[in-house]
Design a protein around this nucleic acid. Structure first.
Lengths: 237, 237
DNA sequence: ATGTTAAATTTGTCTAGACATCTATACATA
DNA sequence: TATGTATAGATGTCTAGACAAATTTAACAT
């Protein structure tokens, strides 16, 4: 490899690796060459390779695990739709850092649709949670969830603390719950959703509508989620 | 300085510098010690100091300028309210990278308030721009702007391209415009605004209402802006 | 005083080597 | 089978030195 003057070598290596990745030489999930292999390939010192890799880690293109190696970060997350799939588990299972950020919340009276899904009378007070789910700081989905306010009074604070609905529900004695139904469609996002997903308004989102029930089969949550179609793929097995 | 085992030295140096900064030993805007001075202070190699500084740069605590030195990043931006103050100029003048991101836009009929400020008839079609202004990726303010749609048809695309209202207005022949009035108040942000500013809902925002006029004195823009009070201070001279 | 040039200062890049830490694998042992 | 252990392979940290690039400072000439 020959270096063009004016641009530091590590930046040129970064560029080369980036184009290798985008051309599929290293596919998402693949193991990258080891540092020593790159040292031989590029004919530079190990630290120079590390400087380039460090930049790729910062920009979330690759992920490095000590002792194991470097891996191309999967930008499209496979999201299996099972009865017990949990967001944080899926994300951390892919060695990515999950986060669920509460954007706003409100207590209001159930509309007809919400009431029907939660199996309560219309007008019953429900908690509305509006949140963004991220992996490594990249937003993957925005969700609007409804829970019966009577049964889950104070869940908002717990959710904000634990950043996990599963955890919050545990505090209310619900150790186990499962997905009852999931309806899937594709739409264009509203301005607001597009902004929260940090994606263009003309890129579609996968929209799911779901009801979770406790072990007795009683509905505990009704939610509408918009997944970024560029970053998430739903898998039904 | 003595190192506690189990934590890398560069992280301990980062920690120490961070606490120095938060305790005011190095105040915002101040020049940090040179790398060689830190080498002597901590008794480590220059590269170790650089590793620590690099982390502080990444987290936006300090800024490094080749040949000049490292400076503590001013977290609170002084925003002078003059008749010709431009956001991007102010930010880049402080060696920070300005960005204005359009969140949503719409064409709608002017409400009574909007119409009055823009000096048009209520019901006239106006362009609504909703945007977030950032410095180094940190949101400083969210603005809602209204411009008469007739005069500025197609300005949205130009704004998205140039990310600057000043630039976009130039394409419409407005080389010079100035602030006519600015009204200032303090409020608590809505859920949405708090989220876009990435700040807590119980932290106040500085809210300004302003009208810009062209050189002939004709109103061209009416806007409401919410500044993060933790990150911006308005200055009237 | 003012502008130019040269030197000194300061951060950026690259190389080189040593040892630490973490992971995976193979192998011995209970 | 299960568990510990040794070893090799991989990334992480630290040191050392050289030179490049950008900026500031000082000296100098005009």
């Amino acid at each position: 490899m020959d270096w063009e003057p004016g641009l530091s070598i590590w930046k040129q290596i970064e560029k080369q690796l980036l184009s290798d990745i985008s051309e599929g030489v290293f596919a998402p999930g693949d193991k990258m060459p080891t540092e020593m292999e790159m040292v031989r390939r590029f004919g530079v010192n190990r630290h120079t390779v590390r400087r380039a890799m460090s930049a790729l880690v910062d920009s979330n293109v690759v992920r490095v695990e000590q002792g194991r190696g470097a891996f191309v970060q999967e930008q499209i997350l496979d999201y299996p739709l099972g009865s017990k799939t949990r967001f944080s588990q899926i994300v951390s299972g892919r060695h990515r850092l999950p986060d669920k950020r509460l954007v706003s919340h409100e207590v209001l009276k159930a509309s007809a649709a919400v009431a029907q899904h939660l199996d309560v009378k219309p007008g019953t007070r429900v908690i509305e949670l509006f949140s963004v789910s991220e992996a490594d700081g990249v937003p993957l989905a925005v969700s609007t969830s409804y829970l019966p306010a009577g049964r889950f009074d104070g869940i908002v604070e717990i959710f904000m603390e634990t950043k996990s609905l599963t955890e919050a529900l545990k505090r209310f004695g619900i150790d186990d719950y499962s997905r009852k139904t999931t309806r899937i469609s594709a739409t264009l996002p509203s301005s607001r959703v597009a902004s929260l997903l940090k994606q263009a308004k003309n890129r579609p989102v996968i929209s799911t509508e779901s009801v979770d029930v406790d072990s007795a089969g009683v509905p505990i949550e009704y939610g509408v989620t918009a997944f970024s179609s560029d970053r998430v793929q739903l898998i039904v097995e």
